[in-house]
Design a protein around this nucleic acid. Structure first.
Length: 485
DNA sequence: ATGTAC
């Protein structure tokens, strides 16, 4: 089948919804659903389409194998993929979560006016770059003992706050209260522990960043008010994950899952989809280790938040309280969760795999903090370097269409190697400076990898979920200072 | 994403 023929099999169901029919590929148990505009569909790689079809072949998958508008080719599952598997008849797969377990985003609001920060942004970025270590293999100035590491694996952001990194309100404003109860540090191997131990409070590299932003546009004033966000003020966004710890957990369990797939006779169209039955020992071991990795990431973002507050306090000579530096929300966009969803009129327990997809629960959902329950959870969509980020609120469409999920960002359209050849970090830095954006990076070449041109348009991606009522636009923020690994 | 290849 040629690429063109493969794409022609995909059928437009309605505006922004395309279906990969069940006969697209032999062995599919459910159809695929791709939530994209016509333009994004046109740009979608056939290999990504095939990955959607491959996921549809896995046991116990419910309703559809889904891809969000920012979907692109990933390890086994597409990035931007969402798949729910029955808690008993289904499977759990590390490939459906990704290497960076609980890669995620948080945003901190402030009462500071952009005009107060802009003139000093260069020095502020220098201070933040010093306070928060970044780059591949970067080490933290925080030293944790083995038992503290266990506590972090068990209790995530809650551990960090109890250890003095943050305030109680931070916990309430994290998805899942900043930790997954399922975590078991005993399921995390020595190598993952060893890699994770010195990396608490580090940003990492790639598309991870720490950004100072200005609230640029308000789409929904009432909900913006509920989230505590006012036009023209400064927000701070942190995008990072579980560093070497999560990466090693994924690597370790991929090996376990390869054997488990054989043991349980699961037919895999792609070895990278290695998985185990959800209620098998292997499946549960991975889930407990993954949850520990997710908790590590929440603790990591919490420690970074504390250092950002400290840096602001020193730099502006005022308390974080006085500056109004409250955490708005923190979301995980690489994770699997056991959730209840209505399937064909019945409540069912499913393991929802969100790999490059953000939970987007609507108003009234029990898992949303009380302060936000009347309007739906904040859905944080980071832009690529130099482009706007968005805060949306979860909508009813998410429960109807996507197992309570939305997109997670812009989505790459170009590989890192190609980007490095095509763009110069030094030129980009100058271009961004002309746009009023101050960048700090460990190396200019990494700026090239993250050039805005290597990503889809974040506004185009966000518009799709907005139009489908999966998550609706509340606020747009634009960067004025970016620190990258 | 990642001690960017065991």
């Amino acid at each position: 089948m040629t690429q063109q023929q493969a794409k022609e099999l995909v059928r437009k169901v309605e505006e922004n919804i395309f279906e990969v029919p069940i006969d697209f590929q032999e062995g599919m148990r459910v159809p695929g659903r791709i939530f994209v505009s016509d333009k994004l569909m046109n740009d979608l790689e056939v290999n990504t389409l095939r990955q959607v079809a491959n996921v549809a072949m896995l046991p116990g998958i419910r309703k559809y194998s889904m891809a969000m508008p920012d979907a692109h080719f990933g390890y086994g599952f597409p990035i931007g993929g969402v798949a729910a598997f029955d808690a008993h008849e289904g499977i759990i797969s590390p490939g459906g979560v990704g290497f960076d377990i609980n890669c995620g985003v948080r945003i901190i609001r402030t009462d500071m006016e952009a005009g107060e920060v802009r003139p000093r942004i260069s020095e502020l970025m220098d201070e933040l770059f010093k306070a928060v270590p970044s780059g591949v293999g970067s080490k933290s100035r925080l030293r944790v003992s083995g038992s503290e590491l266990d506590d972090a694996f068990n209790y995530g952001a809650q551990w960090a706050v109890e250890s003095g990194y943050g305030v109680e309100a931070d916990i309430e404003h994290c998805e899942d209260g900043g930790f997954m109860d399922a975590a078991d540090p005993l399921k995390v191997g020595d190598k993952a522990r060893k890699r994770g131990k010195p990396q608490f409070g580090t940003l990492g590299s790639g598309n991870h960043f720490l950004e100072i932003q200005e609230v640029d546009k308000i789409y929904d004033p009432e909900i913006a008010k509920v989230y505590g966000i006012r036009e023209g003020t400064i927000t701070i966004m942190i995008h990072c994950g579980s560093r070497g710890a999560g990466h090693q957990i994924c690597t370790d369990y991929l090996r376990v899952m390869e054997q488990a797939s054989r043991k349980y006779g699961i037919d895999l169209p792609d070895k990278q989809l290695a998985c185990a039955p959800a209620d098998s020992r292997e499946g549960q071991d991975y889930f407990k280790a993954m949850a520990a990795g997710a908790n590590y990431a929440w603790a990591n973002r919490q420690v970074i938040t504390h250092w950002v507050r400290e840096t602001f306090e020193r730099f502006f000579g005022r308390d974080a309280d006085e500056l109004g530096m409250d955490l708005v929300y923190d979301v995980a966009h690489n994770v699997a969760k056991l959730e209840e969803h209505e399937i064909d009129g019945e409540k069912k327990s499913v393991y929802v795999h969100r790999k490059g997809a953000t939970r987007a629960f609507p108003a009234g959902h029990k898992d949303i903090p009380p302060a936000y329950r009347s309007v739906g959870q904040p859905v944080l969509i980071p832009g690529s370097m130099g482009t706007p980020s968005y805060i949306l609120h979860g909508g009813e469409g998410a429960m109807e269409l996507t197992f309570g999920s939305a997109c997670h960002g812009a989505g790459r359209v170009m590989g890192r190697g190609e980007a490095k050849r095509k763009f110069s970090g030094e030129v980009l830095e100058k271009q961004l400076a002309e746009m009023g954006i101050t960048v700090r990076a460990t190396h200019p070449s990494m700026l090239a990898e993250e050039a805005p041109e290597v990503y889809k348009s974040s506004s185009e991606v966000v518009n799709v979920v907005h139009e489908l009522n999966i998550a609706r636009k509340v606020v747009r923020v634009k960067p004025i200072g970016v620190a990258k690994g």
